[in-house]
């Protein structure tokens, strides 16, 4: 696993999850997740996913170091989500970040692209459930972990402004 592919995996994850890189690294699990994706789908597939993502970003580049969000959205759908091989893997990476669980790919996928030994549904580490992005996304704590303090549940959830309806990032 190279430093470069890790950085690319982070960029891909930012686009897939809509969480900032600081949040993703802040789970302490990014390296584990890349390793899990490789073990479950094979290096070749993950490399192809990162390549497709790099190409999608290039499609949407605005020429001054950023990218056009609408163009990026379209490029991601075109190059990744509508791809029979890469689409299911990308969706799995989203679920992995949000739930901390790797879900086994469907039989249709493994029939076509091969089954890896680590392909079945599994939790990545003991910490991955409580670090799931699902919880900050809904402004709640993972039940049974990360205690929020007695009575804090009486307060409305705290959601970052940029995720609220009517605010553009």
């Amino acid at each position: 696993m190279t430093v470069q592919s890790f950085d690319e995996f982070l960029l891909l994850s930012v686009d897939l999850t809509a969480f900032e890189q600081t949040d993703l690294l802040g789970t302490g699990l990014a390296h584990h997740y890349l390793a899990k994706a490789r073990a479950a789908c094979g290096d070749e597939v993950v490399t192809a996913l990162l390549d497709a993502h790099r190409a999608a970003r290039a499609d949407a580049a605005d020429g001054v170091g950023g990218h056009d969000r609408a163009l990026l959205d379209r490029a991601l759908r075109h190059r990744i989500f509508s791809d029979d091989r890469l689409g299911p893997v990308a969706r799995n990476v989203i679920k992995l970040w949000y739930s901390g669980t790797w879900y086994g790919l469907p039989a249709e996928w493994t029939d076509c692209y091969g089954a890896q030994p680590a392909a079945e549904t599994s939790t990545v580490t003991a910490a991955s459930y409580q670090e799931g992005l699902l919880w900050p996304a809904i402004g709640a704590n993972p039940p049974g972990a990360k205690a929020p303090g007695y009575g804090s549940w009486a307060q409305p959830p705290r959601i970052e402004d940029r995720y609220l309806k009517g605010t553009a990032k």
């Binding site: 409305p156 959830p157 959601i159 609220l164």
Partner: peptide
């Protein structure tokens, strides 16, 4: 910072 409670 940017976090705010969602109004109900």
């Amino acid at each position: 910072g940017t976090t705010r409670a969602v109004t109900r």
